[in-house]
């Protein structure tokens, strides 16, 4: 009834089908990362934020979640605002939270749920400071 008791059949959710990158594509993305890293050191203000977001999204394409999170967080640290970094982080934290939950890693769960809480505090701050 309503699938309430079909737990036995329940399987781990199908991971989102990620596009498999060829070695060539991977090396192009890695090159891109190197050049972005070189540029970002010289930058400040909005330009820096754009580059940090690009670094985040490039790492995301490479499925390197930890580095993606690091650069998106750097971007939000530069300036708390709504946009790509915020949205991407919410999604990445939730993915990391899920991974930690499957591994029964309590510290990991707390870390990423805590980070989601922080995002919500940022959300309140940004909204109030915008108006």
């Amino acid at each position: 009834m309503f699938g309430l008791f079909n737990n036995k059949k329940e399987k781990k959710p199908v991971e989102e089908t990620k596009v498999q990158l060829t070695d060539e594509e991977k090396s192009t993305l890695n090159n891109e990362i190197q050049s972005l890293k070189a540029v970002v050191k010289e930058q400040s203000g909005n330009d820096k934020i754009v580059t940090l977001n690009n670094l985040g999204s490039t790492y995301e394409k490479l499925d390197d979640k930890n580095n993606a999170i690091k650069y998106y967080e750097d971007s939000l640290n530069e300036k708390e605002q709504f946009g790509d970094a915020y949205n991407a982080l919410l999604k990445l934290y939730e993915e990391k939270r899920k991974e930690a939950a499957y591994q029964k890693n309590d510290d990991g769960i707390q870390k990423y749920v805590g980070k989601m809480d922080d995002l919500m505090s940022i959300s309140k701050r940004v909204l109030k400071s915008n108006y």
């Binding site: 709504f82 946009g83 915020y86 949205n87 919410l90 939730e94 939270r97 749920v113 989601m116 995002l119 919500m120 505090s121 959300s123 309140k124 940004v126 909204l127």
Partner: peptide
């Protein structure tokens, strides 16, 4: 699926 507090939707 974590159900979070309402500010989660503000940025959108």
């Amino acid at each position: 699926k974590p159900a979070l507090d309402c500010p989660v939707l503000f940025p959108y």
